[in-house]
């Protein structure tokens, strides 16, 4: 609205893709707090849940048009505009974790490829940054136990981005829905099984009411991160120090989100198991193996596009070097855990 006073804070209208009750709103709030504190009150973020201005899947359009100034989302939500979007979160798993891939974005050439996609290829008026490197995402929730690839044929399953192509490749029938619509869709019979992201969101969505078999470990989304979108004109108009605060706030929230997630995700997994009668499994090995084979097929198809081929080459080169170091160097944490908490892990 007009008549802004000189000393009034710049208000950033930031909408997320998450329902008001989701734990990810808390994650976004950590960003808000960091930015507001660092700016000494010169920036104020008006944080809105999905649907407040535009739909969960429409935040990119909203930011581009300036209907909202910023968004807190994931890139796979706009892969309908270009499948390449999905590589910034839900791409082939060459072996890197989310942290590995966040490293690729900031140090390994990802940022330039993202800029090329959003600005040169799609002609969008946005800047994007990536935050919180998420723990690998569970294979998800099933009404009946699944023992192998045969049990998932024809199942109507919810996921997003290239993970959807992957699951389709494996013989599932895939629907993509925003997080807030999953459990209602399960009740309505739109889907028979789904994954969202993590035990805390699942708990808050009321997942345990509609399914009780929870499968952890999967290659479908092992390296996702939050996408922060900013309208370019809005960002360019800000004083340089405020721009810097909005940018570095993303890094700060990546760290605080991580600590917060470790605490909550683990506690909520326990709650699901102990209070809500959910059975937690590791995903059967043959399904994991089939996922890698399905990725192979997808990689071949996607490589036909020049842009996507270049992204995958860049990611592969990064992972080959970096993850070699990570894996060679890593302590066998499972061994230590078993030593101190014997018999708990069912891997």
């Amino acid at each position: 609205a007009p008549a802004v006073l000189a000393q009034a804070p710049v208000v950033v209208k930031m909408q997320t893709s998450w329902p008001a009750s989701d734990i990810w709103m808390d994650f976004a709030r950590q960003y808000v707090v960091a930015v507001e504190e660092m700016s000494g009150g010169r920036l104020k973020i008006d944080l809105l849940p999905a649907g407040a201005v535009v739909g969960a899947f429409q935040v990119l359009d909203g930011v581009n048009d300036g209907v909202i100034d910023a968004a807190h989302s994931v890139s796979s939500y706009w892969y309908g505009k270009h499948k390449g979007a999905s590589f910034f979160g839900t791409g082939p798993v060459f072996g890197g974790s989310a942290t590995t891939m966040l490293g690729w974005y900031y140090q390994g050439g990802g940022q330039e490829l993202y800029r090329e996609l959003t600005q040169d290829i799609l002609g969008l008026n946005v800047y994007g940054l990536f935050g919180f490197p998420m723990p690998a995402q569970p294979f998800g929730w099933f009404k009946k136990p699944i023992n192998g690839v045969a049990d998932i044929q024809g199942i109507k399953y919810r996921t997003v981005g290239l993970a959807a192509d992957l699951m389709q490749q494996m013989g599932m029938s895939v629907a993509q829905l925003p997080g807030g619509e999953i459990v209602p869709a399960m009740e309505r019979g739109v889907i028979d099984a789904f994954e969202f992201n993590n035990p805390s969101s699942d708990l808050r969505f009321g997942t345990a009411d509609v399914a009780t078999n929870y499968y952890l470990s999967s290659y479908h989304q092992a390296s996702e991160a939050f996408e922060f979108l900013f309208n370019r004109d809005f960002m360019d108009d800000l004083d340089p120090d405020l721009q810097a605060i909005l940018r570095h706030g993303v890094d700060a929230s990546a760290a605080s989100n991580t600590y917060f997630a470790l605490d909550n995700y683990s506690a909520d997994l326990k709650k699901l198991q102990e209070q809500l009668g959910v059975t937690v499994y590791r995903t059967p090995k043959d399904i994991l193996a089939a996922q890698l084979v399905a990725w192979d097929a997808l990689i071949e198809t996607l490589s036909k596009d020049d842009y996507m081929r270049r992204v995958m080459e860049s990611q592969r080169a990064w992972v080959e070097r970096v993850t070699y170091y990570e894996l060679m160097n890593a302590a066998d944490l499972g061994l230590a855990y078993n030593h101190y908490f014997p018999g708990k892990l069912a891997i």
Binding site: F57, D61, D65, Y77, W78, Y79, G80, K81, H82, I121, L122, G123, V160, A164, D165, Q168, V174, A175, Q176, L177
Partner: peptide
């Protein structure tokens, strides 16, 4: 303006991997 942007990148539906044009 909104739909010509969508035409420019041949936008498809995100609801399924079938890639139904929208």
């Amino acid at each position: 303006k909104y739909s010509s942007r969508s035409w420019s990148y041949g936008e498809v539906s995100i609801n399924s991997p079938a890639g139904v044009p929208i």
